[in-house]
Design a protein around this nucleic acid. Structure first.
Length: 395
DNA sequence: TACTCGTGGCG
DNA sequence: TCGCCAAGAGT
């Protein structure tokens, strides 16, 4: 950026109102013909239920439609209204959410439901600002609910919309720095009416036509005005700042098994990674993990060190910001063994119902314990945990 | 601003 | 096989 005074701020492109009108008309026409049918989406011409819109938007944050659908069905069946959700126990919510990931969403979902009941009498507020003030609702979700559930003239900008707009205008600026500019471009398109349809049309276009890889430009209603397509490299948008990769972390997980099949389980701290979810006792997960001293951290159950049997192979799991390898140890414990402070025994047939994140399901499966999918059914025939050799420590 | 926070699918 | 990515929010 130079220090020279830029020209007065103005819409970067398509300042011609008739051009914007043509674009929105083309997109809405395409949407009328090709809109997706989704469980939370109202029929054409009908405004959707705010509760369903909100619930789906929270679940869809950084999550695919395919993964969300069964969870959405489960939640609407268990909690038909916001009041039902607000009245539920947090743990019941977490158990139903198990497997979907980003568990802070489930806590905020519950907190938001209570806030809607307490602050707004059980009805979602119909303003962006009031929505934005609720737990778990950020800029995107506030605008999405406002547009889709209340038809307010706003444009939610998610990853789909970012991709569509950066391609349409061949925006060279990298994300996330380019967000203010994308906001201006989106606002320039905002139609006077059918705001909800327009928002969903943008997202459908990004999800089905203007995809990250191999976009189907020949089917796109915006093919003609799309600068990136004309340039021939739509796939190279949006530009993004490279992210640094997380270091491999390792740890040991301890599966204590009673003769009656019960497993020792504890609850993770409310905040942070897998907050509030269940786990078997583990060491810390760190790059400096030493397998030799792992047993020093095994739960105190009166089991001699040699009573712990190391299961061959490791459980691997990849979080957003780091990969993880867990060495799994198993021990048989007397039926009268007391659970150490902070942990508890869970009968084998009740393990599936615990709020277990998938990494812990992998650990139990690796230890030879049958963990029938809990919540909706995260994935039926999940391939067995890979028995891989531990990787060499990087440097 | 930049990092933390899951999981599954796909090319 | 593996890096990328999916309807982001909170700090």
């Amino acid at each position: 950026m130079t220090l020279a005074a830029p020209p007065p701020a103005r819409k970067p492109s398509s300042p011609d109102p008739t051009a914007a009108t043509r674009l929105t008309a083309a997109l809405l026409g395409w949407y009328d013909r090709h809109r997706r049918v989704l469980p939370w989406r109202a029929p054409a011409g009908v405004t959707a239920d705010p509760y369903a819109v909100w619930l789906s938007e929270i679940m869809l944050q950084q999550t695919t439609v395919k993964a969300v659908v069964p969870y959405f069905q489960t939640f609407t069946a268990a909690f038909p209204t916001v009041r039902d959700l607000a009245a539920a126990d947090l743990d019941a919510v977490l158990r139903l959410w198990a497997g979907l990931g980003y568990y802070a969403r489930a806590r905020n979902l519950h907190a938001c439901a209570k806030a809607v009941v307490e602050r707004h009498g059980g009805a979602f507020p119909d303003s962006v600002d009031a929505l934005r003030a609720l737990p778990g609702i950020g800029d995107y979700t506030a605008n999405a609910i406002a547009a889709i559930a209340f038809d307010l003239p706003v444009v939610p900008i998610d990853g789909n919309v970012e991709r569509v707009l950066t391609r349409l205008h061949a925006v060279e600026d990298e994300l996330p720095g380019a967000k203010p500019r994308l906001r201006a471009l989106a606002d320039a398109l905002e139609p006077a009416d059918r705001a909800g349809d327009f928002a969903q049309a943008l997202m459908d276009l990004g999800a089905t036509i203007c995809t990250p890889k191999s976009p189907a430009c020949v089917l796109c209603p915006w093919a003609e005005p799309c600068v990136a397509r004309r340039r021939g490299d739509p796939e190279s948008f949006p530009r993004k700042t490279p992210k640094k990769e997380g270091r491999l972390r390792r740890g040991a997980a301890f599966v204590a098994l009673r003769a009656d099949g019960a497993v020792l389980v504890r609850t993770r701290p409310e905040k942070g990674l897998l907050g509030g979810m269940a786990e078997v006792p583990t060491t810390e997960w760190s790059a400096a993990f030493s397998e030799r001293s792992a047993l020093d951290h095994a739960p105190a159950l009166g089991v001699a060190s040699k009573g712990w049997r190391r299961v061959p192979g490791v459980v691997t799991h990849v979080f957003t910001h780091f990969p993880l390898e867990l060495f799994v140890f198993v021990a048989s414990v007397a039926t009268d063994a007391e659970a150490p402070t902070g942990s508890r025994w869970v009968a084998c047939e009740k393990i599936a119902g615990e709020a277990l994140p998938n990494v812990m399901r992998k650990v139990l499966v690796h230890a030879g314990i049958d963990v029938t999918p809990g919540a909706p059914e995260p994935n039926q025939s999940k391939p067995p945990t890979r028995i891989s050799k531990p990787k060499r420590s990087p440097r």
